[in-house]
Nucleic acid binder design. Structure first.
Lengths: 197, 197
DNA sequence: CGCCGAGTTGAACTGAATCAAGAAACGTGG
DNA sequence: CCACGTTTCTTGATTCAGTTCAACTCGGCG
């Protein structure tokens, strides 16, 4: 049917990174995960759609963004070995506030909410995996709030570079700017060493 | 030993609000949860301490805050029927970045990380409860990021009031201001109807 | 009564936004 | 492989929301 060894490898990665899965559970997961390879620019989700999928990025990168009075604001970046989903839609079964766009050609493991619910019921260790993934995400968001609030623009940018030094090579500055809560112009000035005090 | 019926009632509240627990699991939880009643102003956790406890607020309210170059910045409010913990310390077993302070006399259910780990191993439904609590918290944080970033001060304040209309009666304005990422002076001006455009 | 913490008000300052041009890089078709 | 249009990024001038600093008011409470 599909590239099963690659799916297996991706599942292994997830287990290693977050919480190990029993062989039985991993096998069940393999049955319901799909491997996608998609072009740069693909929109996985659009605003207003119901999205009951979560995506694990095997290679490439993606962003979640929303439109705020017409302006495109990036809310989340997912690089290889990270998850991305339209969280409001995925967890609350509500119309998505977000778009999800691929910023590079990518391979993704796609898993449906329904599969996750079924596997969580059946396997205690899958339930745990879910808890741990969500916990890490929560901690990340908390750190992001600290960084956004009260840090001047330069510091926010430096903080981001510390976590992801390669981001400027992979993501247009506009998206980085909106992610940091600053304008493209400000980001451009910050990056110009002449403007450093 | 303790006010067991009150502990039971608190556990019932948690189950109702997040994810139901089997009687067996609820009974196990009852064994390891402690009910505290503490005065306003009590510090549950101080910066630098290891905190391996999480607290469910039965009545009263608490805040988590940190010091950023000497300034007191509120990061989280927990009113009745919500959880509060020094998340960085609790989940990563690292020294706390936060203080936790009671803003009103409070009754709290205290549960240790170790108990949670044990109960999560033993009871699939407890593991699920944990996943769901963390998921809701994650969604809250995500909403907060959206609200913090790009909203002007007035809007951020209005958003908070929409969620917690009584907050100004219960919490000093300084804490609300730092939570919103604005100064006390700005908050004061915003609240003064004369300054509305 | 007088002090103290909490909140308000005012005036000056500032970091970042906005508005407006232009330069550089990028890809696509001739 | 070059020309052209599009997207991405830079630079400059101006404006503005919110900060900072400072003084003042108010309401408890010892």
């Amino acid at each position: 049917m599909q590239a099963l060894p690659e799916i297996e490898a991706a599942i292994q990665l997830i287990g290693d990174q977050y919480s190990p899965l029993s062989p039985h559970c991993a096998a069940d997961l393999k049955q319901c995960a799909r491997l996608l390879h998609l072009d740069k620019g693909t929109l996985l989700v659009r605003e207003g759609q119901l999205s009951n999928k979560t995506y694990f990025v095997v290679t490439g990168c993606a962003r979640a963004f929303y439109l705020k009075s017409g302006k495109d604001i990036t809310d989340w970046f997912a690089f290889e070995h990270a998850f991305v989903s339209a969280i409001h839609s995925f967890f609350l079964n509500a119309p998505s506030q977000h778009f999800i766009e691929l910023l590079e050609p990518a391979r993704l493991l796609e898993i449906s909410r329904e599969s996750i619910a079924r596997l969580s019921d059946k396997h205690h260790d899958f339930e745990r995996l879910g808890r741990i993934i969500v916990t890490k995400t929560m901690l990340q968001l908390q750190q992001r709030i600290v960084s956004i609030q009260f840090e001047p623009a330069q510091q926010k940018y430096d903080n981001l570079l510390a976590i992801r030094p390669d981001i400027t090579q992979r993501v247009p500055l506009t998206h980085i700017a909106s992610y940091l809560g600053i304008t493209l112009e400000t980001l451009s000035r910050i990056r110009n060493p002449k403007n450093r005090i």
